[in-house]
Measured scan of single mutants.
Amino acid sequence: MEVRTIKVFTTVDNINLHTQVVDMSMTYGQQFGPTYLDGADVTKIKPHNSHEGKTFYVLPNDDTLRVEAFEYYHTTDPSFLGRYMSALNHTKKWKYPQVNGLTSIKWADNNCYLATALLTLQQIELKFNPPALQDAYYRARAGEAANFCALILAYCNKTVGELGDVRETMSYLFQHANLDSCKRVLNVVCKTCGQQQTTLKGVEAVMYMGTLSYEQFKKGVQIPCTCGKQATKYLVQQESPFVMMSAPPAQYELKHGTFTCASEYTGNYQCGHYKHITSKETLYCIDGALLTKSSEYKGPITDVFYKENSYTTTIK
Results as ranks from 00 to 15, higher is better:
Q238L: 02
A146E: 07
S79P: 15
Y252A: 08
D180V: 04
L179N: 02
G220M: 01
P97C: 12
T43E: 12
N111L: 06
Q123P: 05
T258L: 04
N111P: 01
N100W: 00
G267S: 06
G194F: 04
Q195W: 12
D41E: 13
N111H: 00
V206A: 02
V206D: 00
T76Q: 15
Q20K: 14
Y208I: 04
Y208C: 08
P248V: 09
K54S: 14
E296K: 12
D63Q: 08
D180T: 10
T91C: 10
Q196N: 11
P248Q: 08
A145K: 03
K191W: 09
E204Y: 07
I277L: 03
S310W: 12
A150Y: 05
A289M: 08
L151Y: 05
D165I: 02
L118K: 00
G257M: 00
F80H: 04
R167N: 05
K7R: 13
H51S: 06
L17I: 08
N268I: 00
E264L: 00
L153M: 14
D63V: 07
K307Y: 02
T282H: 07
L186H: 08
L65I: 08
R4Q: 10
T192E: 13
Y208Q: 04
A205C: 04
T27Q: 11
K233Y: 09
K307V: 13
I45K: 08
L114F: 09
Y214K: 00
S279Y: 01
T260F: 01
V221M: 08
H276Q: 06
E71Q: 13
V58N: 08
F217Y: 04
G272R: 04
Q238N: 05
T312E: 09
L121Q: 07
G220D: 04
C271N: 13
Q230G: 04
Y297E: 04
I45W: 14
D180C: 06
K127V: 12
G220Q: 02
Y28S: 02
N100E: 14
E162N: 03
I152S: 01
K218C: 04
E2F: 10
K127N: 11
G299M: 04
N157A: 02
Y265E: 03
D287K: 02
T76W: 07
Y113R: 06
D41I: 10
Q30L: 14
A205P: 03
Y138A: 15
V243P: 02
P78V: 09
N187V: 10
C149P: 04
Y137H: 08
C271E: 10
H74L: 11
M170Y: 06
R184C: 06
V3M: 14
C182T: 00
L126N: 07
N110Y: 04
K275M: 02
T159S: 14
I315F: 15
C261H: 00
V188A: 00
K44Y: 13
L290G: 10
T313W: 12
V188G: 00
T260S: 06
F9R: 13
H90D: 10
M209T: 14
R4F: 11
G228S: 04
T5L: 12
V12D: 09
C271L: 13
M207H: 08
P224S: 12
T314P: 10
A117K: 03
G53F: 11
Y306H: 01
I315Y: 15
P241G: 11
C149N: 08
N129I: 10
K255E: 08
L212H: 00
Q98L: 13
R184M: 02
V185M: 09
C156W: 08
L186K: 07
T120P: 00
A69G: 08
L212K: 08
T211N: 08
P131T: 05
V166F: 08
G194N: 02
Y84R: 03
A154I: 05
A132F: 05
E215K: 08
T55Y: 09
C193M: 04
M245W: 00
G53Q: 10
S213G: 01
K158R: 06
A69H: 15
H273D: 00
D287N: 03
Q237E: 11
G202V: 02
P224K: 11
